[in-house]
Write a protein that binds this DNA or RNA. Structure first.
Lengths: 239, 239
RNA sequence: UGACACCAAGUUCA
DNA sequence: TGAACTTGGTGTCA
């Protein structure tokens, strides 16, 4: 009830600081998303970069489902690789506007620089930074949040609270890993990247859980009836 | 090079202010030791009070080493408890002089008041305030200092710079936690409290690191090969 | 056993 | 405001 800005909406707003980190302002708790730190981590980053190759048309989906052995995971696959030491949102986003005939299509296009994806030059590749957070993770009342950014501009950021229920309408306690996963899903669902002409998404994440889960471990799980190495069912499967 | 007092010695001198804090005068950097603030912290003080029960004779040491599983930690144990809200050097030091037949024994004796250590009345209990400081902690050229006081008199204070090398002759960068640790060690080593007849030391510290490290965490470390919760080796083990 | 992430607490500083 | 020194704990996997 102290001083307020003059704008009344309760939608979360974001600010981007000098290092590229961003913060959700109208959010409780106020969480800082450390996108800028990805740059410092550089080559040592174990989470690394996740390249997602979508397979959107029905035939490809069917084929992928067959190949994966378990259809639920077969809609897309990914490849993990390490980020360069100079990684930062400002360096990786080679922003250029394109002309579109349709006003409903966002004209912002960000080609990932070729040196970050050698051999992928023929694909229209989009880059996105993701991060998840969970205050009081593992404690009594955890509160999750997530964010993603596909540009170095403030209005290119999106952040929101982690929902209490997953896509299957089941209640799920908020955890750090659910938040990290949800950040990637949030981008993939909110933006019609395929319709915009992108054929490859590069996801920058600091989460080994997300990076390896979507690239390495998922292949074992698909041919494994989704059992963990300890024999227990894989968690957060709904996401 | 500004104004100087007329005395030429370069031994650090200390001044005690109204609140019980003290400052090293001939020291660079000039550091303030906040003993007086312990009173304000009172019962909320998480660091609390550290009661040290020494086991000084060889048999007890050997027994303790066996019991701890790892001999290096077994020389003494402690119990943590919270300080009362009214805690202050002036209130806790019930100074009384005693007569001694030996001039070499300091006649100053400070019995901790019974209400601060219920149940310990049968032991000769000595109280000491400790504090550590580290200017530019974490920066390029940190400079540490520490101090302790076992009385409310000015000449009962001792303060000095934190050494560059630990007891193992290894170089160690000064940190706040090394300074806090060194303050306690400084008192235990400089004063022949056992020879003076004290059988229990109560250490007043505002450092959770010192209080829990010497009472709670050390028991896990001893049976843990001195690994931190994150699996890394415990820091400052030399102290 | 290891790895990444997410927190919690205290202190020390700039 | 922001950063470093230190610890304990959970979320997850191999």
């Amino acid at each position: 009830m102290a001083q307020h800005d003059s704008d009344e909406d309760d939608q979360p707003r974001m600010i981007l600081d000098r290092r590229g980190d961003f913060t959700i302002i109208n959010s409780e708790p106020q969480t800082r998303f450390k996108i800028g730190e990805l740059a410092a981590l550089g080559a040592q980053m174990a989470g690394g970069v996740l390249a997602v190759r979508p397979i959107p048309n029905p035939q490809s989906v069917a084929h992928a489902k067959d190949a994966m052995g378990n259809g639920e995971a077969g809609v897309w696959t990914g490849t993990a690789f390490n980020a360069p030491a100079t990684l930062s949102p400002q360096s990786i986003f080679a922003s250029r506007r394109i002309n579109t005939l349709n006003d409903h299509i966002n004209p912002e296009r960000f080609m990932i620089r070729r040196r970050y994806s050698p051999g992928l030059a023929g694909l229209k590749t989009m880059a996105v930074f993701t991060d998840g957070a969970c205050a009081s993770n593992g404690l009594a009342t955890p509160k999750g949040g997530f964010a993603f950014s596909a540009s170095d501009a403030t209005d290119g950021l999106h952040a929101q609270r982690l929902e209490d229920t997953g896509p299957t309408d089941t209640a799920h306690t908020a955890t750090n890993n659910r938040a990290e996963l949800r950040a990637v899903i949030g981008f993939l669902e909110c933006r019609s990247w395929w319709g915009e002409g992108w054929t490859r998404i590069v996801v920058m994440t600091d989460s080994e859980y997300v990076a390896k889960g979507a690239t390495v471990w998922i292949r074992k799980w698909a041919s494994n009836d989704w059992k963990t190495a300890a024999g227990k069912p894989v968690a957060n499967r709904d996401l």
